[in-house]
């Protein structure tokens, strides 16, 4: 096991102002008895609503935060007591915090990180060349980090986390704020990284396509506890995650209540726009479109995917 977490708990003291001078002191458990383990080579999506305890768990896994109780072992090490030893074996990308030097060119940031990880040039250079080529970073390697776009910076961050060829890569919201093309490039790179090196990956995300592309296993946390541990199809089957077909009609039509395998969720503008929900295991988008266009004349259509918040909410309801 590369990650072993048993009955992990982390409490925070929250002080609130109650009235002008009085202050109350509440103890809140951000992580409340979490147990899971990850085998080498796995890619696990760690998902949950905001405030569910994802970041707190990641901080405890990486040695930034001490657990209130329970045990954590990562790469066989105690993250807090053996922090520097662990830092050599894991790579971490926090979407919101940078490992790079904002006033230095990307190239110099990589050179510094190689020195910090005490990598001999013979090991660092080929690895860097590989990342630069795959992530197409050559055009902006000599630009100071502060002048990079978010997508360019994120490619730099991922490279920074992988330079020392870690056994475990932890990604906290790696695609947040990126455009579609940047997201897809990053996902493709991570898929290749896993295939070539067998790197274990743990990622948190709000983006369902991230999970579909990368993870064979999903952990859903809610209110500090593991609410689901399994594969994506199993998760979808359990919560019955729905896709929604949104159709715009040429002229206002009747409510489409009788399309097989669908439920009418919403009718807008006197029937000009209608939202039809359907489950992937019951029918296909193509079949629904065919059924709808047999009834009315279509002007436009779009399919929306279930989002993570929705999936998590359903887990809790079921």
């Amino acid at each position: 096991m590369i990650v072993e977490v048993a009955d992990l708990r982390r409490e925070f003291v929250v002080r609130r102002r109650a009235g002008r001078l009085r202050r109350t002191r509440d103890v809140v458990a951000a992580v409340d008895g979490v147990t899971f383990s990850i085998s080498p080579g796995e890619c696990v999506g760690y998902i949950g609503a905001n405030g569910a305890g994802k970041s707190t768990t990641i901080k405890m896994l990486t040695g930034i935060l001490v657990p209130t109780s329970g045990t954590v072992r990562v790469c066989g090490l105690d993250p807090v007591l053996q922090r520097t030893a662990l830092a050599r074996q894991i790579g971490v990308v926090f979407g919101q915090r940078s490992q790079l030097w904002w006033d230095l060119p990307l190239r110099d940031s990589f050179r510094l990180l190689a020195a910090i990880h005490r990598l001999p040039a013979s090991a660092a250079q080929p690895r860097l060349d590989e990342c630069v080529a795959l992530l197409e970073m050559e055009p902006f390697l000599d630009v100071p980090v502060r002048q990079l776009s978010l997508g360019q910076r994120m490619r730099g961050e991922v490279t920074a986390a992988l330079l020392h060829s870690p056994e475990l890569l932890v990604l906290d919201e790696p695609t947040i704020g990126l455009d579609l093309l940047s997201k897809e490039r990053l996902r493709g790179f991570l898929v290749r990284e896993r295939r070539e090196r067998g790197t274990t990956v743990l990622l948190t995300t709000h983006d369902l396509p991230d999970i579909e592309r990368l993870c064979e296993r999903i952990l859903v946390v809610d209110h500090g506890r593991v609410a689901f541990d399994g594969t994506l199809p199993a998760l979808v089957a359990r919560v019955g995650a729905e896709r929604v077909l949104v159709v715009d009609l040429v002229e206002p039509g009747p409510a489409l209540t009788d399309v097989p395998g669908t439920t009418l969720r919403l009718v807008e503008a006197d029937g000009l726009r209608q939202h039809l929900a359907f489950r992937q295991e019951e029918t296909t988008a193509a079949a629904v479109v065919a059924a709808v266009s047999a009834r009315v004349e279509l002007r436009d259509l779009a399919v929306t995917e279930p989002d993570i918040e929705d999936v998590v909410r359903r887990i809790y309801e079921s």
């Binding site: 053996q82 520097t84 030893a85 050599r88 074996q89 005490r118 001999p120 090991a123």
Partner: peptide, 26 residues
């Protein structure tokens, strides 16, 4: 503390630059 890492990771990294060289680069 840092030395345990070399033991765990094995041969690859011990021939790299020293801690002092890392600070020097910074």
């Amino acid at each position: 503390m840092a030395d345990t890492a070399d033991r765990v990771v094995g041969g690859l990294r011990t021939d790299g630059p020293t801690v002092l060289a890392a600070y020097g680069a910074l």
